[in-house]
Design a protein around this nucleic acid. Structure first.
Length: 270
DNA sequence: AATTGAAGCAACCGCCATCCG
DNA sequence: ACGGATGGCGGTTGCTTCAAT
């Protein structure tokens, strides 16, 4: 790569370049044994001549069992486009809303396929790279939302976790997007334990079904009000409850709330 | 079959925020 | 309050693959 080694890494023998299968296995075993706590420790305990950045990167982006490989679905692509438009290059936040996807993957996809203009009409946006995409419909994946809810706990229990994100959708033509997706992070928890204790199973995703427009009012739904709604909601009936209350949420712009989400790969001692 | 250029992917680097003594 | 250690993030680079010529 031709760059000077990171100033903080004093090890002269730091290995660079592609990871071998053997190295992967060693890192897996080291993490299994010591947990994902300190990457500095892991890099030393593993015996691999890889620095903390390299070990972390390899685990977070490739070895973590929750990583989803393969091409992005049209729904994921539209989410990325929309979220990038609202959040900017907050790839980690964007990735946290796409379960199993990493910021590196999202960024790579964006750099390779980003639309040449953010002001394209709706229909043109669905012909990126001259490959027409089927316009998703609101009811295409209604069950995924509830499923995301139900899967939250299981994911949180893992050593590497999705932030509790999921996918919801609604039609929002005003944003020049064929459909609007959002994940509302309903947690102000700062640790996995807090998350599990205080939010699960209410934590999750609110699908803004039937939302006709995204206005500043829609974005004004703060995490606080959202939390209150969740705290009042009956368990296991999230969507019906909210719709019954006449509420709709779509708040991908709430960076503060997103920042409060548990990091997808929050260190956890096993 | 060989060459070449584009696209995709994997990885590194430096910076910043946070934690902790 | 301060400084070092650490984790995490975004930008960037270089390698690999593959299609076009």
């Amino acid at each position: 790569m031709g760059r000077a080694a990171a100033s903080c890494e004093k090890d002269e023998e730091v290995k660079k370049g592609r990871w071998s299968a053997e190295e992967d296995e060693i890192l897996r075993q080291t993490i299994h044994k010591h947990g994902v706590g300190s990457w500095q420790i892991i890099s030393k305990k593993s015996g691999l001549r890889r620095n903390r950045h390299s070990c972390r990167f390899r685990w977070v982006n490739y070895l973590c069992p929750d990583i989803k490989r393969g091409p992005f679905s049209p729904e994921e692509e539209s989410q990325i486009i929309q979220l990038q438009a609202t959040l900017g290059n907050k790839w980690s936040v964007i990735a946290s809303k796409l379960p199993g996807r990493t910021d590196n993957d999202v960024r790579s996809w964006w750099l390779a396929k980003k639309p040449c203009s953010t002001t394209l009409p709706n229909e043109e946006k669905w012909h990126i790279n001259d490959q027409p995409k089927e316009k998703p419909q609101i009811n295409d994946h209604p069950s995924e939302v509830g499923e995301s809810f139900r899967n939250i706990k299981g994911k949180v229990d893992g050593a590497c976790n999705s932030s509790g994100g999921g996918v919801g959708s609604s039609s929002v033509d005003q944003l020049a997007m064929p459909f609007k997706t959002s994940t509302v992070c309903a947690s102000t928890a700062t640790s996995l334990d807090q998350l599990e204790d205080s939010c699960e199973p209410k934590l999750g995703v609110v699908m803004a079904a039937g939302l006709d427009s995204i206005s500043s009012d829609a974005f004004a739904h703060s995490s606080d009000s959202f939390l209150k709604l969740l705290s009042d909601s009956p368990e296991g009936n999230d969507m019906e409850y909210l719709q019954g209350q006449g509420h709709s949420f779509s708040d991908p712009c709430d960076v503060d709330a997103a920042d409060k989400c548990v990091s997808p790969y929050k260190p956890q001692i096993l």
